[in-house]
Measured scan of single mutants.
Amino acid sequence: SDYEVNVNGIHHRFHNISEELIKFIEEALRRGEDLREIIKKVRELLG
């Protein structure tokens, strides 16, 4: 049904976003950045 496609589409989009965010955060932590600064950047990215 349309509803299922829609829900799956939304889930898929969020899954991709969270994968990208996790990579972004892991790389920043590897560079020794402060978690609070990383979260601030993530918030800015998400608008």
Rank of each mutant, 00 (worst) to 15 (best):
F14C: 02
V7D: 04
A28N: 11
S18M: 03
G9E: 03
I25A: 02
E4L: 06
I22Q: 04
E37S: 12
N16P: 02
G47L: 13
R43Y: 15
R43K: 14
I17C: 03
L35M: 08
L35F: 06
L35P: 11
Y3N: 01
N8Q: 08
V5M: 04
K41Q: 15
E27K: 10
V42C: 02
N16E: 04
R13N: 15
G9Q: 02
I38D: 00
L29C: 00
E4N: 04
K40E: 14
L35C: 03
H12G: 02
D2Y: 10
L21W: 05
N16H: 05
E20V: 07
K40W: 11
I25F: 03
K40D: 14
F24T: 07
R36V: 11
V7G: 05
F14K: 00
I39D: 02
L29W: 05
G9N: 04
G32P: 04
R13H: 15
E33M: 11
H12Q: 03
F14T: 00
R36W: 13
G9R: 01
L35S: 03
I39A: 03
N6I: 14
V5T: 02
E33I: 12
H15Y: 08
V42R: 00
H12T: 03
K23D: 10
I38Y: 02
L29Q: 05
G9H: 03
F24L: 11
K40S: 12
E37H: 13
R13E: 15
H11D: 07
K41N: 11
E26S: 07
R36P: 12
F14Q: 00
E4W: 04
R30I: 09
E20P: 08
E19Y: 13
A28R: 09
V42N: 01
L46P: 03
S18Y: 02
E4M: 04
E44P: 06
N6E: 13
E26G: 07
L35I: 12
H11K: 15
N16G: 14
R31V: 11
E4A: 04
S18I: 03
K41I: 12
S1K: 14
K40T: 13
L46F: 06
E27M: 09
L45V: 11
R43A: 15
E4C: 07
N6S: 11
G32H: 13
R13K: 15
I10E: 14
E33Q: 09
R30M: 13
A28P: 01
K40M: 12
L45H: 12
E37W: 11
N8A: 06
N16F: 05
E20H: 09
R30E: 14
I17S: 02
A28M: 14
R13F: 15
I22E: 03
E20A: 12
Y3A: 01
N6A: 07
D34N: 07
L45Q: 12
E26Q: 12
K41H: 10
I22S: 02
N6G: 02
N6Q: 10
N8L: 04
E44L: 07
D2V: 05
V7H: 08
I10V: 13
E26R: 08
E26I: 11
E19F: 11
G9F: 00
F24H: 08
L45C: 04
V5A: 03
G9L: 02
H12D: 05
K41V: 12
G47Y: 08
Y3Q: 01
K40Y: 10
N6D: 11
R31A: 14
V5G: 01
K41P: 01
R13L: 15
E20G: 09
Y3S: 01
S18E: 03
V42K: 00
R30S: 12
E26T: 09
I22R: 09
G47S: 11
I10C: 07
L46R: 08
G32V: 03
N6M: 11
K41D: 08
L45G: 06
G32Y: 06
L45S: 07
E27N: 11
S18D: 07
E20F: 09
E20D: 13
G32W: 05
S1W: 14
D34L: 09
N8Y: 01
F24I: 09
D34Q: 09
L21N: 06
I17V: 15
L45F: 09
H15K: 09
D2H: 06
D2Q: 04
I39E: 04
I10Y: 07
R13Y: 15
E19Q: 14
R13C: 15
V5E: 01
K41S: 12
Y3I: 03
E33L: 12
E27Q: 08
F24M: 10
I25M: 03
F14L: 01
K23V: 13
Y3L: 06
S18A: 05
V5S: 01
I25N: 00
I25Y: 01
L35K: 02
K41F: 11
L29I: 13
E19V: 13
R31S: 10
E19N: 11
V5C: 02
R31G: 09
I17F: 02
L45P: 05
L46V: 14
R30T: 13
I39Y: 03
L29P: 00
L35N: 02
L21H: 08
I17N: 00
I39N: 01
I10F: 13
N16V: 02
F24G: 05
V7F: 05
E4K: 02
S18T: 11
G9D: 06
I17H: 01
H12P: 00
A28K: 08
L29V: 13
D34F: 08
E26W: 04
R36M: 14
V5L: 06
G9I: 01
R30H: 15
K23A: 10
H15Q: 15
E44T: 07
V7Q: 15
V42G: 01
S1H: 14
E27L: 12
R36C: 05
F24A: 06
I39V: 10
L46E: 11
N8G: 11
N8C: 07
I25W: 01
F14A: 00
I17Y: 01
N8D: 10
I25Q: 00
L29N: 04
N8T: 02
R31W: 09
K40N: 11
H15M: 06
H12A: 05
G32L: 05
R43L: 14
E26Y: 06
E20M: 08
I22F: 05
D2R: 01
L45A: 12
E37M: 09
K40P: 04
G9C: 01
G47T: 11
E37C: 06
R36D: 14
D34W: 06
R36A: 13
S1G: 08
I39R: 03
L21D: 05
L35H: 03
I22C: 02
G9P: 00
L21M: 14
L29F: 06
K41G: 07
R36F: 12
S1M: 15
R30L: 12
E20I: 09
L21V: 12
I38G: 00
R30P: 02
N16M: 07
R13D: 14
H15P: 15
